[in-house]
Amino acid sequence: MAEYFTLFMGAVIVNNFVLTRFLGLCIFFGVSKNLNASIGMGMAVTSVMTLSSILAWVVYNYILQPFGLTFLTTVVFVVLIASFVQLLEMIIKKHAPALYNMWGIYLVLIATNCIVLGVPLLNSESNFGFMKSVVHAIGSGVGFALAIILMASLREKLQYADVPKSLQGLGIAFILAGMLALSFFGFSGMIAL
């Protein structure tokens, strides 16, 4: 149990995917202008990442490994996850239109995203078991949600600040992310992985 807890906290705080591994930056900067949107995005990423990690784990351990096809991992994971997200989008659109109106746009954005692909790849590379993969995926998703919500809150405040013209937009956002990353660095070494 302690092992899973360490893995989870490690993924959320110490090895935060956005702030220490640079994964998921496109949506991190793209969607963090608005707090509500970033909450929706955080939730969408967490759930999609968990589901696709499960799927990828099954495919990797029951198809790719037994048949010695691990060199195809990249191709298979990309196609698998992209089509899974598309399918999820269709199902939600048909059966839960209200949910689709809230979340649909985020699903389209994350269909082929570095973070959603990165977690299953890391899981298979570190040979995680089923439970570990799931815990790792949830932890990474929560970590992403935490980072993007913090970032959105900061950027909403930033609108009232007087930023030099050339720094406006992405420039200042990156510097802000750097400071956020610096503060997260205070946690490093807390959990040794």
Partner: peptide, 12 residues
């Protein structure tokens, strides 16, 4: 990583 973020912000 923090240095990377800040540097890229300045370069942009």
């Amino acid at each position: 990583p923090p240095g990377g973020f800040i540097l890229i912000g300045l370069m942009i």
